[in-house]
Design a protein around this nucleic acid. Structure first.
Lengths: 329, 329
DNA sequence: ACCTTCCATGTAACCGATTACACAATTAAT
DNA sequence: ATTAATTGTGTAATCGGTTACATGGAAGGT
């Protein structure tokens, strides 16, 4: 790889001049600039980002912290982020945390050692302020944390929407699968739903759950149909859980959506591939990623006067686990 | 952030000595070492990886090139890689290529500018040798390319296995969805299947396809059942395509697996969530990621005498789109 | 006692960029 | 014409590490 010195020699100028044309600052004579550009092309020179980063104390790297990229919601976020930052010349370093505090600390540490210029975190460990004394800006994605900048979907509205769509389509005895207690986003959905159901005086029951894993969800699905065999509308804590409920319902011979309606949450790619295709409350994951990236870049550029906490709209996606409004009970 | 100079001053030694204890090389007196270690802890000093990388011309970063992280097969690979390299203190930079050559070139460029110490690529652009003159080692994952180091699943055996399982369970008129022509892995599966079917003189037909996308697959599924309405065993080019076929078959009222058996390929997380859960040929994606990472690290460390082209075994995962062997034909 | 070898440590060059500062040449202003 | 401001370029310090080399003292061999 050619260095800035090689370019300088080739163009017959000093490295400072080369650097000036590279960064387009300071004074450079037109002819000199041409010579330098030619030299750069001839040597197909690309500046060494590491050297830059060392001097500037800022790289073009952005760190992304996720619970687990295998969870189908996160690739969407990651891709949204990447598409946005890539245009600005940034790169993504990812770290899977598995809800483990030491891993999170480790990654934050390493990110800093690598001079990352910003961090986006979608992890769920709360109550610790390990994000407070970082030199680089941090954006919280799919969660909020104190008054830190954040991008999140409107879970309360989502819960309300799910409940009302179910009732509007004729369900009378709703069962809600309450998501993990430590996840604010899951609680928002739950609270949004029960607030609406109470206000509307609709009968409902609750099954407590503690994870989003499919195999756990299979158990809760069984529990659900044992405890509340005559429920006719289920609000799952997310789409993976909804898939498990759907399985169990079909296994029990329930007609969906005729006997039983079901709404998930997230709209992961899987949801439309289920049978019947799952009605769900969509979080715009890809766009949330994009927004988080935009927000982060604004923070990096020290812009002012922009919204630092972005609530993204959710949307009811009507598929075939809910009935048509016309045919409601 | 404290620097090595701060540590040196605090411990009353030179930076060289600090560096020696950090890297555990050269001579350092026991007492001096203790002083340095204390200073490091007091200042909670962490070496700046950027400075290291600049001098060594090698970072602790590994580049990963993928078609699209949203495709459910790739998060598994990525996670396998990450778990392996993370133990060795490496970080992952990811790039989504979308099968676009300029994007691939861009990322390779940027990786080099960042001194990545190795690259793992799971992209599908062939016929160009843009990997030939890189200074860092490259591992091809889920594909092979000339004699470059690679990790891949045994597609030929997978195709053979899928065909034979279908026939063993009673299917007589097989239809094969032939995957995209430019993907070697897809062709291997196809060739493995038809070779076996021909040898066994089993009747089969072929539907040509050109992508792995679900919406395209919905069309091919329709085409399939129009052209070959009496097929009783389908071999899909992967699990996403299988999901589309499953939808169409259920829509047409086929009894699965009684009237029609179906086998996918990959075993993505979705597959067990389909209804009925999909029988498939499993590629050990997570382990393939791990193996690729191990292989890359061996190359980085310039080890010798190890296998540079690793063929991973595939496995038939029996779920409910195939019949039991006992109840066959 | 003298020479060699091993230890222990420090000084300074180096990695490849950016930029403060110095200086010369040109242009503008009075 | 003289001074001031602008333009163009180079030298060298700097970022934070690693390591080649130099140096000096202690230990070992004859």
């Amino acid at each position: 790889m050619a260095t800035i010195k090689d370019v300088a020699k080739q163009a017959g100028v000093s490295v400072a001049t080369v650097s000036r044309v590279l960064n387009d600052n300071g004074y450079v004579h037109g002819n000199t600039r041409k010579l330098v550009i030619e030299a750069i092309q001839q040597l197909s020179y690309k500046p060494n980002e590491v050297a830059r980063s060392l001097f500037k104390k800022k790289s073009r790297l952005i760190g992304l912290l996720l619970p687990d990229i295998r969870n189908p919601f996160f690739p969407e976020l990651a891709r949204g982020i990447e598409d946005e930052i890539q245009e600005q010349g940034y790169q993504l370093i990812i770290g899977n945390i598995d809800e483990k505090y030491p891993k999170e600390m480790d990654y934050i540490q390493t990110f800093q050692q690598n001079n990352v210029t910003g961090i986006i975190t979608a992890t769920n460990l709360t109550g610790r302020s390990h994000y407070d004394d970082l030199s680089s800006p941090v954006v919280f994605l799919d969660r909020t944390f104190n008054d830190h900048p954040s991008v999140f979907a409107d879970g309360i509205e989502g819960g309300r929407m799910a409940a009302s769509e179910l009732v509007k389509r004729g369900s009378k005895r709703i069962t809600i699968l309450k998501g993990p207690a430590q996840l604010q986003t899951a609680q928002d959905r739950f609270n949004g739903a029960i607030a609406w159901l109470r206000a509307e005086k609709v009968d409902f029951s609750v099954i407590e759950t503690s994870s989003f894993s499919f195999s756990d969800a299979e158990m809760w699905a069984k529990e659900l149909f044992e405890k509340y065999p005559d429920t006719d509308g289920i609000l799952a804590s997310n789409d993976v859980v909804a898939a498990a409920v759907l399985h169990e319902a079909l296994r029990l011979g329930k007609a969906i959506p005729e006997d039983l309606q079901l709404i998930g949450f997230d709209d992961i790619p899987l949801s439309r591939l289920l049978f019947p295709p799952l009605s769900t409350i969509r979080q715009p994951a890809y766009d949330m990623g994009k927004e988080a990236a935009k927000l982060l870049i604004r923070l990096i550029n020290k812009e002012t006067h922009f919204e630092k906490n972005i609530r993204m709209p959710v949307m009811f996606i009507e598929r075939q686990t809910t009935r048509k409004v016309e045919e409601n009970g």
